[in-house]
Design a binder for these strands. Sequence first.
DNA 1: CTTATATATTCTTTTTAAGGAATATAGTGC
DNA 2: GCACTATATTCCTTAAAAAGAATATATAAG
Lengths: 113, 113
Amino acid sequence: MKDFIMAMKALSDPNRVKIIKMLQHKSMCVCEIKAALNLPQPSVSKHLKILEKAGFVSSQKDGLWVNYYLSNGSSTPYAAALLGNLRHWLKDDPEIAGLVEKIPFLNREELCG
Amino acid sequence: MKDFIMAMKALSDPNRVKIIKMLQHKSMCVCEIKAALNLPQPSVSKHLKILEKAGFVSSQKDGLWVNYYLSNGSSTPYAAALLGNLRHWLKDDPEIAGLVEKIPFLNREELCG
DNA sequence: CTTATATATTCTTTTTAAGGAATATAGTGC
DNA sequence: GCACTATATTCCTTAAAAAGAATATATAAG
């Protein structure tokens, strides 16, 4: 039950849902997410930590950057199933669509430099 | 997005999840749920309202009683899909199992009289 | 119309989660 | 070693949700 509640709470915040929807298209570092959502960096880090603990995302260091990407099923069954649903859910949400359109133009070197 | 967040928030509380898991077995009135979960009546009514607004449960008056039951897909796609998942999720949770075992012995006339 | 009962609503208090500013950590390059 | 940069963490404040007590509504029965 505890894991299930943690998963639901992780998805109860629009910014965290937006992060997941963006990561469906490519793995991103903190500063890219920060730029896309226009949020302060510590806020992004905190959201990512919540998503990570709930099993939705994983991370990998790449030098000074940390790349975040969607977890592959092995974490918790709840996160895995919900990530599957979220593949098509909210596809037509205008706010999400707007974000996704901008993803190709995010330039990590430029944003963080 | 708003509907999705509402659904996630509705499932972010253990008591509400327990209500859904019980309703999988039979439709129940407020006093039966109150007895099963050992919660104050206003608290049960409030939880039910949240579940209803998020599309998980519906209700039907039966004289002085109000019967609550799981909504059938037509409400929101999120609630419908999650209700599907919840059919098997948490089946082995000890707390849920304990609750479900007691459902057959809930006697509405006795509890509310 | 009055009483009794099941449920709903309101209001207040407490708890929990989110936002923000500042600081800390951990790599990188000199 | 020092300086720089991306990310993480802490602490404090604010906002949102839950719990609790009291009251209101609605239906049924006498």
